[in-house]
Nucleic acid binder design. Structure first.
Length: 502
RNA sequence: GGCGACGUAGCUCAGCUGGUAAGAGUGCUCGACUCAUAAUCGAGAGGUCGUGGGUUCGAGUCCCACCGUCGCUACCA
């Protein structure tokens, strides 16, 4: 029995869920679903990051407690993930007691090991950035990022001795721990430049995890947040669980938080005497017209609106197939319509329609069995092999392309054999349609990590029983499992074609 | 300012350690078919692989510079 533990970042509750958050989450979800198909014992974690000054201030403005503030905004993420059929096994919140326990335990170990010591820090502090600035950083006395006034803060801090871990980090990064390779080199570069010790506590804030050895301090939000990945699988509360899951930890993150996840986080674990995560997958950004999303209002594009137009399947498919995992990627509504129409409506949806119709005309609506020696058997085998490898390498777009190759080949196959011209009830028409139905069965299974609903619809449309998600790979993708003899009704289009707006 | 990534057909993107005449999907043109969601199938047009140098028998693929986009990061005067 293999185990697979995959996480998304925990999202800062003050944000409104946008397609960037959704992209990360859907990607992790699809991979988690693939591992479940493989029969792996899978743990998929997402959640919200709820500490820090910004939350504290927002709560004050709204006249409520920080926790109430976090409750409200955290719920938005839960709702968004329900809408996208996200199959997370846990939704962690950093305000949970178990998390406080884990944070205190992990960092107490780091301190006991000599990696945390006291120091002091002073500077201009921007609340929105939650960061200090020097005089020269300031623009007209304001924060250069937010263009709002900064505050002079001076506080005693506990510093994390990052510098002491450079050699170990370099060693860890020398393997395939961070992918793609370009991102790993970036992390390596950060370490090579030399690491400064970092301040990891605050006295100026109350809203955080208390430092166990010093009541006046709370941990700075980042150092509390990262530990959620350990908390969720039992660190500090269930060591047996933690030992089972932690060696299989895979993090999915955006390139903007590479430094924290690929340098600070493994260092924190090392300092506490724990193993760094198994693997970190780093993806790029979604762009609109070549610009990053926050600058162009792409954050204003709400997943819910796109789901309304394309459905959950259309939404998930577009981002999984259309975005190669790693580089930045262009997003456009028109591109989404194109992808939906060509891949989902025309190639896959239409295949199901035409097969169902011919089965009804030539086989009395009962699906025939596939041939053992079908010419499509080899195509299916190749398709599966490619897809499996790609999912394993966290490349959903490659995996889905491989799956669609099989679907496209099947359209060609029908064109070459023209079952609609064959005699009703003949063996030859049964052979051709049985093969096509078998492809639809395999496709339903292999596409299910992306198409959470349509895959089940296809499964039922060809007369299969039960849940497609209960199938087990690789057996379920091997040729010949479609039993035949099941009713294949004509049905309305699976993916109604979208009209292109003039 | 420093570090790094990216810049390939109209569009969205593949192209691992350099080497059979540069690929896919989509879009476009033409043809076929008509079982199917104005869908499907076939053929074709379309690229000096950001710009300029360099290494090499040979570079989209390595090196340098520059331009553009993006991320991180640093700012003492």
């Amino acid at each position: 029995m293999n185990r697979f533990y995959v996480t998304t970042p925990i999202y800062y509750v003050n944000d409104v869920p946008h397609i960037g958050h959704a992209y990360t989450t859907v990607s992790a979800d699809a991979v988690a679903r693939w591992h479940r198909l493989l029969g792996d014992e899978t743990m998929f974690l997402t959640g919200t990051d709820e500490h820090g000054l910004k939350i504290q201030r927002a709560a004050e403005e709204n006249g409520i407690s920080p926790l109430e503030q976090a409750d409200r905004t955290s719920q938005r993420f839960r709702d968004a993930w329900v809408e996208l059929d996200i199959s997370n096994d846990q939704f962690i919140r950093t305000t949970e007691p178990r998390h406080h326990v884990a944070v205190q335990e992990l960092l107490a170990r780091a301190k006991a090991n000599g990696y945390i010591e006291k120091g002091s820090y002073a500077g201009h502090y921007c609340v929105s950035c939650e960061a200090y600035y020097t005089d020269s950083d300031l623009v007209d006395g304001n924060c250069p990022v937010h263009e709002r006034p900064v505050e002079w803060l001076e506080e005693d801090n506990y510093f994390f001795k990052l510098s002491a871990l450079e050699a170990e980090l370099t060693e860890w990064l020398s393997n395939d721990t961070v992918v793609p390779e370009g991102k790993r080199n970036e992390a390596l570069g950060i370490v090579k430049l030399g690491l400064d010790d970092v301040s990891m506590t605050r006295t100026s804030i109350d809203w955080g995890v208390p430092v166990p050895w010093d009541d006046d301090h709370v941990f700075y939000v980042w150092y509390d947040a990262l530990i959620n990945y350990a908390t969720a699988v039992g660190f500090g509360s269930d060591e047996a669980s933690f030992e089972q899951w932690w060696p299989e930890a895979h993090h999915v993150i955006g390139k903007d938080i590479l430094r924290f996840h690929c340098v600070y986080w493994p260092a924190m674990l090392m300092a506490a005497g724990l193993k760094p995560p198994k693997k970190i997958f780093v993806h790029g950004f979604l762009l609109l017209g070549g610009k990053k999303l926050s600058k162009t209002g792409l954050t204003q594009i709400r997943p819910a609106d796109l789901i309304a137009d394309f459905g959950v399947d259309g939404y998930r498919y577009h981002f999984l197939r259309g975005v190669s995992f790693g580089p930045d990627s262009e997003f456009s509504y028109e591109g989404m319509v194109e992808r939906y129409n060509s891949d989902l409506a025309n190639t896959l949806g239409n295949l199901l329609s035409r097969v169902a119709t011919v089965v009804n005309k030539k086989c009395g609506g009962v699906g025939p069995k596939p041939r053992v020696d079908s010419p499509l058997a080899a195509v299916a085998a190749t398709s599966y092999a490619k897809a499996a490898e790609a999912w394993d390498n966290f490349q959903p777009s490659v995996a889905l392309e491989a799956t669609w190759q099989l679907v496209r080949e099947t359209n060609v196959f029908l064109e070459q054999n023209e079952p609609w011209k064959m005699d009703e009830g003949s063996q030859e028409v049964a052979d051709v349609l049985g093969d096509a139905l078998e492809v639809l069965r395999i496709t339903a299974v292999c596409a299910s990590p992306a198409l959470t609903r349509a895959s089940q619809a296809i499964w039922e449309a060809i007369g299969m029983e039960g849940e497609v998600t209960d199938q087990r790979l690789p057996e379920a993708a091997s040729w010949g499992a479609y039993p035949g003899g099941t009713t294949v009704p004509k049905a309305p289009p699976l993916f109604p074609r979208m009209k292109v707006e003039g």
